[in-house]
């Protein structure tokens, strides 16, 4: 599944990033790399973008861009 499908309040782990170029690099530069734990904190009033908790800070990213991030749900940790 991809990060845009993760519901608010749920946690996931990044598996890999699809896409290429500037956007992909920017997402990685901001800390969303393979194996990173990420939580979806909230959704903006009009439904987009979303706010993530990654590496201890808040990152906002659009759903289109979140769709480039493949994730695995974190079931073993509460």
């Amino acid at each position: 599944m991809t990060l845009n499908e993760v519901k608010v309040g749920e946690k996931a782990t990044v598996v890999r990033l699809t896409g290429e170029g500037a956007v992909k690099r920017r997402i990685m530069d901001m800390g969303l790399t393979k194996g990173t734990a990420v939580a979806v904190v909230k959704v903006a009033p009009i439904g987009d973008p979303i706010e993530l908790d990654v590496r201890g800070y808040s990152l906002s990213i659009r759903k289109d861009e979140a769709a480039m991030v493949e994730v695995r749900m974190k079931t073993f940790e509460r």
């Binding site: 500037a22 956007v23 920017r26 997402i27 901001m30 973008p49 706010e51 800070y57 808040s58 990152l59 906002s60 990213i61 659009r62 861009e65």
Partner: peptide, 9 residues
């Protein structure tokens, strides 16, 4: 353009 932005504390 993409929107990947830090939300500062």
């Amino acid at each position: 353009a993409p929107f990947v932005m830090e939300l500062p504390a």
